Simulated assay, not measured.
Amino acid sequence: MRILLVEDETTLATTLARGLSGVGFTVEIAPDGGTGLRRAQEGSFDVLVLDIMLPVLNGYEVCRNLRTAGVWTPVLMLTAKDGEYDETDAFDLGADDYLRKPFVFDVLVRRLRALVRRSAPERPTVLEVGPISLDPVGQHVHRDRELVRLTAREFQVLHYFMRHRGAVVTKTDILENVWDVNYDGDHNVVEVYVGYLRRKLGRHTIETIRGAGYRFSDPDAAASNRRA
């Protein structure tokens, strides 16, 4: 699941991103409301975590602009302000949930997963490709109805592949959507995780397209085609 975290407190944003990545989310950080609005309109996110007190555009303005533009990605708003009107204002502008700082991290995680579940009619609850199924909310993967244990990063890579089944995706596509748009490490890390998934799900699960990238398709069908 992809999260856009719009938060100008650098330490908090980094801490939250690290924690959320550790429980299976892919997190992109926007440091101000203007940047957050642009990325939310251009990107594909499962949920937005939006601080209210932001530079450039505050959280209220970002939320209002998104809803006016027809962007209905679930929004959880954060604030350190005290006042009985904050929550009402947030909901009136189209927010889906609200959390006051300071908060317990586990509560944030539960709230985010609940938002994704509530928005499930717009996307399949469980992704299925041949014998492989992936539950993005429950964070479970099965092959032939048997549980496959994946690390958080393996799960994120597989989720991206299954959302783009049949399409050729590049290493850059995977790095920007699973790691971070600003990732500047070794691009071969993608090959490493493709190898992990092949070992756990079958070597025909992910096809290498020379000079282009990778394609995820039904592993049983791919194996049958090779035997034909």
Rank of each mutant, 00 (worst) to 15 (best):
M1R: 13
M1N: 04
M1K: 10
R2D: 12
R2W: 03
L5I: 11
V6S: 01
E7D: 06
E7L: 04
E9Y: 01
T11G: 01
L12I: 15
L12P: 04
A13N: 05
T14P: 00
T15W: 05
T15F: 09
L16E: 10
A17Y: 00
A17Q: 10
R18I: 10
R18T: 12
G19K: 08
V23H: 01
V23Q: 03
G24F: 07
T26Q: 13
T26F: 08
I29T: 12
P31Y: 01
D32N: 15
D32K: 03
G33P: 01
T35P: 01
G36D: 04
R39H: 11
E42V: 14
S44D: 14
D46I: 05
L48G: 08
L48H: 06
L50Q: 11
D51G: 04
I52W: 05
L57R: 00
G59H: 00
E61I: 01
V62M: 04
C63D: 11
R64V: 02
R64C: 02
L66C: 03
R67V: 02
T73Y: 00
T73E: 00
P74R: 01
P74G: 05
V75M: 11
A80S: 15
D82H: 11
D82W: 04
D82T: 13
E84N: 09
E84Y: 07
Y85K: 07
D89E: 03
D89K: 10
F91A: 09
F91I: 14
L93S: 02
D96H: 01
D96R: 00
D96F: 00
D97N: 14
Y98N: 08
L99D: 09
K101P: 06
V104G: 05
V104S: 04
F105C: 07
F105E: 10
V107A: 14
V107R: 13
L108K: 14
V109Q: 04
R110T: 15
L112G: 01
A114W: 06
V116K: 12
R118C: 10
S119W: 06
P121V: 03
P121E: 09
P131A: 06
P131M: 07
S133W: 00
P136M: 07
P136N: 03
H140K: 14
R145C: 06
R145E: 14
E146S: 12
R149A: 13
R153F: 15
E154S: 10
F155A: 09
L158C: 13
H159Q: 08
Y160L: 15
H164G: 08
G166D: 02
A167Q: 14
T172Y: 01
T172Q: 06
L175V: 14
N177Q: 11
N177I: 02
N177R: 14
D184C: 07
G185Q: 15
G185P: 08
H187P: 08
N188W: 07
V190G: 09
Y193W: 12
V194A: 04
Y196N: 08
Y196S: 11
L197I: 08
R199C: 12
G202A: 05
I206P: 09
I209M: 07
G211S: 07
A212W: 09
Y214W: 09
R215I: 07
R215C: 15
F216E: 03
F216Q: 05
S224R: 15
S224Y: 03
N225Y: 11
R227A: 14
